[in-house]
Design a protein around this nucleic acid. Sequence first.
DNA 1: ATAATACTTTACGTTTACGTCAACGTCAAC
DNA 2: GTTGACGTTGACGTAAACGTAAAGTATTAT
Lengths: 137, 137
Amino acid sequence: MSAEKPVAETFTITDLAGEFKVTPRTIRFYEDKDLLAPQRNGMNRVYTRRDRARLKLILRGRRLGFSLADLKEMLDLYDLGDGQVEQRRVLLKRARKQLAELEAQRRDINDTIRDLKGVIDHVAESLRAQGINEQAA
Amino acid sequence: MSAEKPVAETFTITDLAGEFKVTPRTIRFYEDKDLLAPQRNGMNRVYTRRDRARLKLILRGRRLGFSLADLKEMLDLYDLGDGQVEQRRVLLKRARKQLAELEAQRRDINDTIRDLKGVIDHVAESLRAQGINEQAA
DNA sequence: ATAATACTTTACGTTTACGTCAACGTCAAC
DNA sequence: GTTGACGTTGACGTAAACGTAAAGTATTAT
């Protein structure tokens, strides 16, 4: 009898696992690595929307090839926005460094996309030149 | 007595390792996985500019988080542009699928960059609001 | 002749990110 | 009261991507 509304107040581990197409094992593993820290209801883990947002960020980072250690640092960046002055200065430096790396990665992606488009155009053209349809007969 | 010009005709394994900041072990490992197939001069490997280009592509792919298995497929895409018609049709489909994935990844990156910029702006602003310089005293 | 340098193969070790049982707790339904 | 359904904690297994010796070969320098 779980609510079907877009977002509930809290989530169970299988809720999140189902939503993001990962196994509960994965989510527990992230907790073991201190990337998540859900509350408990007795023995059971209870995830807030904030936990859910963190998980989303972790999985996005993983798709971009970042290690869990990297992602822990990035999450700490998001967390420590209300620290002491010196802490925030350090945070700012790290965040800008991280930003530079992401922009470098974006350049890599753009280059790769351009190359791949070149291949596609070339092959598509070579098929057209022979008067061949792209779809099979 | 190695030439210092930007590009030579052929390269040794340590040439490439030096240029791309990886170890020879890494390059040999890629060969073992059939991502590279350099010529031999006796026992020693000899890399052409084409091999070098492949290595460059592999390393760029790795920075984007692709597995070596993924990259082998992608390299095959680049290679098979002159195959039979049916082969090229398959190639075209795969290439377009690959392109779609890359564009999805670019969206992930753009989202992440946007989030991170938000953090930076927020923290920088909070420091300015207190009349604090970003650099330490 | 020998030492240094550069390269080779073989093989076992390591880290990361989980997968896969196994055994147990808890609550609702039958 | 036992059977699921869902959750829990270990603990061991594993695939990927190299790292790290160990031991041999080939060329070059002295």
